[in-house]
Design a protein around this nucleic acid. Structure first.
Length: 785
DNA sequence: CGTCGTACTTAGGACTAGCCCC
DNA sequence: GGGGCTAGTCCTAAGTACGACG
């Protein structure tokens, strides 16, 4: 059936268990999270990175770097016959860094075109006349437009094509692959592939036997194809054609070489790095933009994917295969008929150039491993992407008008006489309640993952009276493992669907596939498909969660509350991430920090009493917790304190010596260091004494007021750090980003921002603010999903 | 219908800029 | 002012959906 025989020896980590109620979120305790992760291979590093060698594109880029105004007028001309509506021009100050966007609360779907002149973030002084135009750029407020027919994506379209990765640069002569202890000369094309693998030998991918096998097959085939070649100068090398044993290959020299390069790159000065970035940016500038109906829009992935080894996820049978370099001849460009076709790289031709305005891609090619089509699309902040995003959320919003009926119906249909109807009802129940994906069929050559319709016998276990255990790998081979109490009829149905003669490997929903299911759903609402339920339930859950949040407390507290709501959604959608290797350590560090802050606070309280005994009588409860830490903990704090102190002194000593050396002065001796370290000894004595007497040393000029002030500061820091710690713990295996980016209607977040007075910057990163600008501009504090 | 190809959204991990802490 | 860490960004794989085709 599927993959299997030579599968990756992935260690399966222990399964966690959690009861979760079948009806979403609401208030189920966050403590018993149903998230469990199988241990997956982790990609540690890639260093086959394309990079540098900008030369090629430099001249063109400079030419393209003309004035914005020029570009604009040119574009407008092209657009001459496009939209006729008269633009309303509004002046809107564009957000500059941290000012919350002023909401010009505009009506959605207003029947007018409006174009706002927007101040661009201050450009360095421009000379003279056309400064006005240079500083301002027109922003097309598509969300204030009629949403008409969307089969036509554009009327005119111009762009500069795509950016190819730099050509392969041969390794230095001294760096070679070793075979059976001997250095091997390889043709550059083969050497490049050896480099792909060599660079990653320390990653989990490279340790995966399937990856190794696939890589090696392709590698050997390439060498055979190339033949001994002109590089083969010695007899030993001729044997490379017979290179057949992976275990005799030694990539360590190559690996070391790439590591060295990495280090060198890291060590170049910041100024130098900046310069490199600048030239790189300049050479790429023209690819970054395009003109759609005359309006400037950003292009997303204009960089052609560089060659490398395919990093298929999970147990992908093809992982490790060689992903070949893409040539211009393989690329199809899509561009307006009126536009000038960008020049292909020297000595090359475009595969094809077409003018299809029913699609949004600018370029496409076929990738050689799975034969899938890759596209170059516009950036996330483009109008095209924005519009379809908007539509997606409006569609999900529309579902709320039908959801009741749909639920009512599937409850009835669960008992249908017709097997097909019963399966549809059961599947809809699961998709609605558990936010499962549709689950289309997959091929033999892909990782064995499933969704609702493709669930198999072995993926669910029935536990009477009506608990179902789901355990399967979903998209990206992320494990879905939940124990769910379902309604009795669903339990009964699943039992039927699993009944003999069904066995392991058989589909649960044997009368169903996403097409059938979606067709059924369209009966309720045009355009309704399985995935809409995920969007609907995600945003609905978010709204319900946000509604619980009281409008009190600090901004930080509100952000934490928002994140908690976001987390509920992420859990619903099973958005996971691997726990960072450094997680445990960093949690430990924060915990240590908190106890240290508590200790400091306690010290201050004791100091107050030493300064003025009467305080204790005045407010005994204030001093109740000043001995909250036990002796051992305090001792640990002391140790850390002392260690830090001596480290600091040692470092300072080293620095001072460096300085002296540089100035040609005689350096200090180790005894001088010892002298300096005496201060630490002093401190140690002091602390030891404190530990005995339980009385802190009083610093000169200390007053009760000063102590009070510091205590308040410390308490603030303690709550903040605790908050931070909790957030970190709760988020360690949940990925919040995916739901925020794809499932939660951004207008919900904008509503929260406005209603609760939380700057949008605290909720959306820069990229998200750009992507969701339409939502920021159009939603207010009363917005409801 | 079932299969396939195309076009688009959704996804987690790799990489990195910049922030914070010392 | 440098190093460690993390949040944010980049990259591209892996889904969904749908229409054409036989």
């Amino acid at each position: 059936m599927s993959s299997s025989e030579d599968d990756i020896p992935l260690s399966k980590s222990s399964y966690g268990r959690a009861k979760i109620s079948p009806i979403k979120a609401e208030s189920d305790s966050e403590d018993d999270m149903p998230l469990v992760r199988k241990s997956r291979p982790r990609n540690v590093s890639t260093s086959y990175k394309e990079d540098d060698s900008e030369e090629e594109y430099k001249e063109k880029a400079v030419a393209a770097n003309g004035s914005k105004r020029k570009a604009l007028s040119q574009a407008t001309k092209v657009n001459g016959n496009a939209k006729k509506a008269k633009p309303t021009v509004a002046r809107v100050k564009k957000e500059t860094s941290v000012t919350p966007a002023k909401s010009p609360t505009s009506k959605m779907l207003a029947k007018k075109t409006s174009v706002a002149k927007v101040k661009k973030e201050s450009t360095p002084v421009k000379s003279g006349e056309d400064q006005d135009q240079e500083d301002e750029e027109e922003i097309f407020k598509w969300w204030e437009q009629d949403k008409e027919d969307d089969t036509i994506k554009w009327t005119t379209l111009q762009h500069s094509g795509v950016l190819f990765p730099p050509p392969y640069e041969k390794l230095p002569k001294s760096i070679k692959l070793f075979y059976d202890g001997q250095p091997i000369d390889l043709e550059p094309e083969a050497e490049e592939v050896a480099g792909f693998f060599g660079a990653m030998i320390e990653t989990d991918h490279a340790r995966n036997p399937v990856f190794q096998k696939n890589f090696f097959n392709d590698f050997v085939a390439l060498i055979k194809k190339l033949g001994p070649g002109k590089e083969a100068k010695n007899s030993k090398t001729k044997e490379t054609v017979n290179l057949i044993n992976f275990s005799k290959c030694d990539f360590t020299k190559i690996y070391a070489h790439f590591e060295k390069l990495k280090q060198e790159k890291k060590s170049i000065s910041t100024a130098e790095k900046k310069k490199i970035k600048l030239t790189r940016d300049a050479s790429e500038e023209k690819f970054k933009v395009c003109y759609l109906d005359g309006r400037k829009e950003l292009v997303g992935n204009f960089r052609i994917e560089p060659p490398g080894l395919f990093r298929g996820r999970g147990a992908h049978p093809k992982t490790g295969k060689l992903k070949e370099r893409v040539l211009p001849e393989q690329i199809t460009l899509n561009i307006g008929a009126e536009a000038e076709v960008p020049e292909p790289p020297k000595g090359h031709q475009w595969g094809e150039v077409k003018n299809d305005n029913t699609v949004s891609w600018l370029a496409t090619w076929k990738e050689n491993i799975n034969g899938t089509t890759k596209y170059v699309f516009l950036a996330q902040n483009s109008s095209l992407k924005g519009m379809s995003d908007f539509k997606k959320f409006e569609k999900a919003r529309e579902l709320k008008n039908y959801i009741e009926k749909i639920r009512e119906d599937y409850m009835k249909e669960l008992k249908s006489e017709l097997m097909a109807s019963r399966q549809i009802a059961t599947a809809t129940y699961l998709i609605d309640q558990l936010a499962l994906r549709a689950g289309g069929e997959k091929g033999e050559d892909e990782a064995d993952t499933v969704g609702c319709c493709s669930l198999r016998f072995e993926h669910i276990t029935l536990k009477p009276p009506h608990t179902v255990v789901f355990d399967f790998l979903g998209k990206d081979s992320i494990r879905f493992h939940q124990e769910v109490e379902v309604i009795p009829q669903v339990f009964k149905n699943l039992k039927i669907f699993k009944k003999e003669p069904k066995k392991i490997g058989d589909d649960i929903f044997d009368r169903l596939d996403p097409a059938i299911l979606n067709k059924h759903l369209q009966n309720y609402m045009p355009g309704l498909t399985a995935k809409v339920f995920r969007t609907y339930n995600a945003t609905k859950t978010m709204q319900d969660q946000l509604d619980f949040i009281k409008n009190v407390g600090t901004v930080n507290e509100k952000v934490v509350a928002y994140n908690a709501a976001n987390r509920t959604v992420a859990i619903l959608c099973n958005h996971q991430r691997t726990v960072a290797k450094t997680h445990e350590a960093s949690v430990g560090k924060i915990e240590d920090k908190i106890t240290e802050l508590v200790w400091q606070k306690n010290q201050l309280k004791k100091t107050i009493l030493l300064l003025d005994k009467s305080e204790k009588k005045r407010r005994p409860e204030f001093f109740e917790d000043m001995d909250s830490l036990d002796r051992e903990t305090i001792q640990q704090i002391h140790e850390r304190l002392l260690e830090r102190e001596s480290e600091k002194i040692t470092k300072k000593f080293a620095r001072d010596n460096e300085k002296l050396k540089a100035e040609g002065e005689p350096v200090m001796k180790q005894t001088d260091l010892k002298e300096r370290l005496k201060a630490v000894k002093e401190l140690q004595k002091e602390l030891q004494k404190e530990l005995k007497t339980n009385k802190p040393e009083i610093k000169p000029n200390m007053t009760v007021e000063k102590c009070e002030k510091q205590i308040i500061k410390l308490e603030e820091r303690i709550t903040n750090t605790r908050l931070q710690l909790k957030d970190k713990e709760d988020n360690s295996q949940v990925a919040l980003g995916t739901s925020k980016m794809n499932y939660i209607d951004p207008r919900m977040t904008v509503m929260f921002s406005k209603k609760y007075g939380v700057p949008i910057e605290k909720l959306f990163t820069k990229t998200l603010r750009d992507k969701f600008n339409w939502a920021i501009q159009s939603a207010d504090e009363n917005w409801r999903f």
